[in-house]
């Protein structure tokens, strides 16, 4: 069953009650939302996401609810509880939806340390995936949202989740966060894009989320093989440039911003070094999304060359 198989009011009843167990890639999140007016937004963003009705082991128990009375009066009317403990907040209920999305991201960033987790968007075509590492503000989410609307499958706009045993990238298809100007950029780029309500007043300004295309969510169990590491940077009015970069630079650039690269120690290094060996690495500077799409569409399979010192 998918969330979209439920009506908004059924979704609301479940979120207000025992919760909905969302299956997002390899993770199961038990989600409860104690604000009835938010059910429509959850329903919109997770329409294509499957949920599990029968009892199962869950990875994260997330509850968005009013905090205890005293803190509600002084600090804000909403809080997010992770495994029963207040994790976010209290904050203004007017920004509850973006806060919930950040918390759900945070769960994926911090918990599943059985995988190597890099801070990168991942898109795939013909079984080959491009890892797009980039710090916030470089336009990574906007770029991967655009790519997902032009024939590339979205695995994630935030995390490259890598299984160390076979170096495969696991999809975590969650709503794509868009900030400020990017919201209209994507709406103009593709008017049919499923962009949800825009929430002003967050610490990152106005935020909206785009629901990934339905077939991308449906293929959440299909991993992809890393083929390219492409470090994108949006620069207003810049001409598109696409240059190879040394593999060592790519490794350090990604490792620097990764979630658990150092935590995994040797496993982290070995896994990622193998991936860098197998990938072609580039830096992309762009200002025009259509030109950037053209660059991706022109990619050729990597000439896998193992580093002489690593065999």
């Amino acid at each position: 069953m998918k969330v979209g198989d439920l009506s908004v009011s059924e979704t609301r009843d479940r979120l207000m009650g025992q919760g909905i167990r969302l299956r997002i890639g390899p993770m199961v999140t038990q989600l409860q939302v104690r604000f009835p007016n938010l059910a429509q937004h959850v329903h919109f963003l997770y329409k294509d996401t499957p949920f599990i009705d029968e009892p199962c082991i869950v990875d994260f128990e997330v509850k968005l609810a009013p905090p205890p009375a005293l803190r509600r009066w002084f600090q804000g009317g909403a809080a997010i509880y992770l495994d029963g403990i207040m994790n976010f907040g209290p904050f203004d209920p007017a920004i509850a939806m973006p806060m919930l999305e950040w918390c759900l991201n945070g769960c994926v960033f911090n918990r599943p340390n059985q995988y190597l987790i890099l801070h990168s968007a991942v898109i795939e075509r013909d079984g080959r995936a491009a890892i797009l590492p980039a710090p916030p503000g470089t336009g990574k989410s906007t770029l991967c949202a655009a790519m997902s609307l032009r024939g590339w499958r979205l695995l994630s706009d935030e995390v490259a989740m890598i299984r160390p045993s076979d170096k495969q990238l696991l999809p975590v298809p969650r709503p794509v966060g868009l900030k400020e100007g990017s919201i209209d950029v994507i709406k103009r780029f593709e008017p049919t894009a499923a962009v949800g309500h825009a929430w002003p007043g967050t610490r990152k300004g106005t935020v909206a989320h785009m629901r990934p295309p339905a077939d991308h969510v449906a293929r959440a169990d299909e991993p992809a093989t890393p083929a390219w590491i492409i470090c994108p940077r949006y620069e207003a009015d810049a001409a598109t440039t696409f240059e190879p970069i040394p593999k060592a630079d790519a490794l350090l650039y990604v490792a620097h911003d990764a979630f658990n690269y150092s935590l995994l120690g040797t496993t982290g290094f070995e896994t990622f070094a193998d991936i860098v060996d197998a990938c072609d690495c580039y830096a992309l500077v762009y200002s025009d999304l259509n030109e950037a799409v053209g660059v991706f569409n022109a990619l050729t399979p990597p000439r896998a060359t193992a580093h002489p010192d690593r065999s």
């Binding site: 390899p26 990875d59 599943p112 340390n113 059985q114 658990n260 935590l263 995994l264 496993t267």
Partner: peptide, 9 residues
């Protein structure tokens, strides 16, 4: 998986 993740930490 939960055990493996916690053991990594």
């Amino acid at each position: 998986d939960h055990f493996t993740a916690a053991q990594a930490i």
